[in-house]
Measured scan of single mutants.
Amino acid sequence: DHDVVPEDKFQETLHLKEKEGCPQAFHALLSWLLTQDSTAILDFWRVLFKDYNLERYGRLQPILDSFPKDVDLSQPRKGRKPPAVPKALVPPPRLPTKRKASEEARAAAPAALTPRGTASPGSQLKAKPPKKPESSAEQQRLPLGNGIQTMSASVQRAVAMSSGDVPGARGAVEGILIQQVFESGGSKKCIQVGGEFYTPSKFEDSGSGKNKARSSSGPKPLVRAKGAQGAAPGGGEARLGQQGSVPAPLALPSDPQLHQKNEDECAVCRDGGELICCDGCPRAFHLACLSPPLREIPSGTWRCSSCLQATVQEVQPRAEEPRPQEPPVETPLPPGLRSAGEEVRGPPGEPLAGMDTTLVYKHLPAPPSAAPLPGLDSSALHPLLCVGPEGQQNLAPGARCGVCGDGTDVLRCTHCAAAFHWRCHFPAGTSRPGTGLRCRSCSGDVTPAPVEGVLAPSPARLAPGPAKDDTASHEPALHRDDLESLLSEHTFDGILQWAIQSMARPAAPFPS
């Protein structure tokens, strides 16, 4: 592969990997390779389809078979030569091979799209000592099968071997295949498990690692696999990028399955594409389908809103127990993405979901129960707010008499603000006073009005108090039968009158 990737590009890729991570280095090298001529790309395919690569990765054979028959990708048995050289000459001794072996032994695996480039050397060096003999053996194999790289107009793939297949390693990572398949204008990513390549439709969760975000852009890794992070704060999961590491605690105790298979379609829109997988259930989501939507993949363990709600429900009964003089119970939860139609709101002032922060849900004790107040519409209280300059209440639009249902020339009671006709409430011909108009209920007259088809109010509507207090003497005590009587009149003013009279009014101040 030294004929494909020059030394300066190799060093530039290593520097970019240390600065921005393996995914960015892979993407940059792939983009550079696509700008080369067809001879360089053909050399790339020839390096990929060597015999030892085909033996190690069985899924490469179907890719090789898909090439046109007129494309010669065979390799000479006596060494490598550029395709432009007409004579089959043995190339001179390859010093770059020693360079590659020494550099890969030092860096474990470079971040390139060629056999030198995919593992994360920093994480491997940190986690190597417990498994040094086995990992050293794996390093000797890295130059042979560490990076199976493929690129063409139909298929483009980048393979990364790992030393996680050490025997006896619980939940060992089998390997990473960062794979971009450009077929019919689409893009897919796969993962390699035990020599087999699994596409998103049959993606397997190998051991402790999972394909957290099938994305090839942005600074985030394709698999949430930063070796420096180790395990999740809650004892979460091992990262795919942690090559040759000792077994780590796999999943939280509440995880239903340690080796679950995540779905390959969004649980909201039932469509495929780039998904984020939940650590607590097999569901996966688009970032845009979450509520609120996320802009980037959160670091650490992530769970959907259903799993978060289940966790909150487990903690909430203990938080609601009476604990005198104790601060509110704080339950730190990872930043969760909410699927459509589901929402768990945190306290005000918290950062938005999706940031690399930890939301704190506070379970406050329930407030003391209070008697429910009568629910009145805002339009129902409008007549009470229509007060004239002299303190006389004006008529609201649409006000109707509670007896006849007519809204023409209605009066407004100064005591309960109900609309009424003087002739309907006082049919006996009582003279109307000039000021202080009161309806039949507030004036103490319980004589029913002779209106055909309208039920008369119940005599129990009024329960006047002592006459010594004029204001308190007109406080009506309405009961269920009074409400039914008012409802039978089918008037809004009657219902409003009952609601206003049912509310307690402050006692009249004593004259000074």
Score class of each variant (00 low, 15 high):
R423L: 10
G354V: 15
Q313A: 09
P374R: 07
P328Y: 12
C413Y: 01
G453T: 02
R461V: 13
G453I: 14
T357Q: 08
C266W: 06
D445E: 11
T331G: 03
A419S: 10
R480K: 08
L359M: 06
L411E: 08
L252H: 06
D481Q: 01
Q243S: 09
L258E: 07
V360D: 04
L376P: 13
L437A: 10
D493P: 00
C401S: 03
G429N: 14
C266A: 05
C413K: 03
G391M: 03
L381G: 05
I500D: 05
R423D: 08
I500Y: 03
L395G: 09
E321Y: 14
E484V: 03
W302G: 13
L478G: 07
V387Q: 01
R318E: 08
L250D: 10
G391R: 10
G272Q: 02
E320N: 09
L486S: 03
G280Y: 12
D279V: 04
P368E: 15
A417H: 14
E320K: 12
G300C: 12
G280R: 07
S488G: 05
A463M: 15
D377I: 13
G444N: 12
L290D: 12
E314L: 12
R338W: 15
V403N: 13
G429A: 09
C401R: 02
C289E: 15
V329Q: 12
L258P: 13
F285T: 14
P374W: 12
L352R: 06
G402Y: 03
A251G: 10
L333E: 14
L486P: 05
A370T: 12
T435G: 11
A284D: 13
P334T: 12
V446D: 03
D271E: 08
Q497R: 01
K362L: 14
A463F: 11
G375E: 11
E489K: 04
A284T: 06
L376M: 10
G241Y: 11
C404P: 02
G405I: 11
A319S: 10
P368D: 11
P397F: 15
S488T: 11
S485A: 07
A463I: 10
H415V: 04
R338S: 06
E452D: 10
P450A: 06
D356Y: 09
V360T: 12
W422E: 12
A418H: 03
L252N: 09
L381V: 11
D356F: 04
G241P: 06
P253W: 15
P464A: 12
C416D: 04
P476R: 07
T430S: 10
C386N: 03
D469T: 10
L483N: 03
R303Y: 02
P459D: 01
M503G: 02
Q392N: 08
E274D: 09
C277P: 05
R432C: 06
A284L: 10
A267S: 09
S502L: 02
H421C: 04
V312N: 10
S473A: 14
L373A: 09
L252F: 08
S473M: 06
R295P: 13
H479Y: 07
V268S: 10
G349N: 09
L478I: 06
L437Q: 11
Q309F: 11
E263C: 04
Q501C: 11
Q309G: 09
A399W: 15
R323H: 09
E489A: 01
Q260F: 11
D264W: 06
N262R: 07
G434R: 10
F420E: 00
D470I: 07
E296L: 12
E265R: 05
